[in-house]
Amino acid sequence: MESLMAIVIGILFSIGTYLILSNQMLRIILGLSLISHAINIMIIVMGGLKTGGPPLLSNSDRGFTDAVPQALILTAIVINFAVTAFLLVLSYRTYKKHGTDDMNNLRGNEHE
């Protein structure tokens, strides 16, 4: 399972990277989201998979999976949500202001 997930993570990273490199705001954000999904999977994989039951003490008949990565992912998900929300609104505002969603047109090297 871990090996399978490693490959999935790799694929998600590849797709995410491809999207990020595509100069279009929406695609970039989609790519970033995919990568953050991949990372969440990676963290939980790193904690070890299916080594026990859910980390709830009430069903304590079996062992528990590692709860630490789960807590980390929870924090990461929330932070990621916050950042994505900000980035989305930012990109929307940038588009409105500049009239383009192509990062290639947002170089800003010309003197303003």
């Binding site: 990568i35 950042v83 930012l90 940038t94 202001k97 500049h98 947002l106 800003g108 303003e112």
Partner: peptide, 18 residues
């Protein structure tokens, strides 16, 4: 919210997220 600020924030945010 000036033009330049939005544009540069965009790049700044993307790279830092990465």
């Amino acid at each position: 919210g000036q033009k330049k600020q939005l544009r540069e924030t965009m790049k700044y945010v993307i790279i830092n997220i990465l």
